[in-house]
């Protein structure tokens, strides 16, 4: 089991806190930044999972006991590439949203709102199709 030092734990904690705060925002750009920040936090945590710093893990450069654990670094590298690619995807999605909608806000589920607003009189499921013309106008989106 690895124990990490307090300052690093605090840094990871702060990155997660900032990231999740940003995730809760409406604008996709801020959500994207939040994901990037949490991604950094997760990668830092992955690095820390490899234990204390040491020499480069190259055979012949250092005695094996002085080397760092290379596996978390490989994992972090993979994770960084994946996060990077998905960041690009989110940027493109944000741009597309800006082109189509004029903003990049993450909106409510429209159909959900519609279902919530629908007030059905008890036991009158059949009459319901006559009422509420305004809600039915966009029902086939």
């Amino acid at each position: 089991m690895i124990t990490i030092n307090l300052s690093m734990a605090l840094v990871v904690g702060a990155l997660y806190a900032v990231g999740f705060y940003l995730l809760l925002q409406r604008s996709l750009m801020r959500v994207l930044l939040g994901i990037v920040v949490i991604g950094h936090g997760a990668n830092l945590l992955l690095q820390l999972a490899g234990g204390p710093p040491g020499r480069a893990p190259i055979v012949g450069d250092a005695p094996p006991e002085a080397m760092t654990d290379p596996l978390p670094q490989a994992l972090a590298l993979t994770a960084i590439v994946i996060t990077f690619a998905l960041t690009t995807f989110l940027l493109a999605l944000g741009y597309r949203s800006w082109v189509l909608l004029g903003h990049d806000e993450v909106q409510d589920d429209i159909e959900d709102r519609r279902v919530a607003r629908r007030q059905r009189p008890a036991g009158a499921m059949e009459e319901e199709s006559d009422a509420e013309p305004e809600q039915r106008a966009g029902a086939d989106q």
Binding site: I2, I4, I38, A42, L45, L46, L75, I82
Partner: peptide
């Protein structure tokens, strides 16, 4: 996915 990554890191650390 990021929580998954966190889980992997914690499992590896442990």
């Amino acid at each position: 996915s990021l929580l998954f990554l966190t889980m992997v890191a914690l499992v590896y650390a442990a």
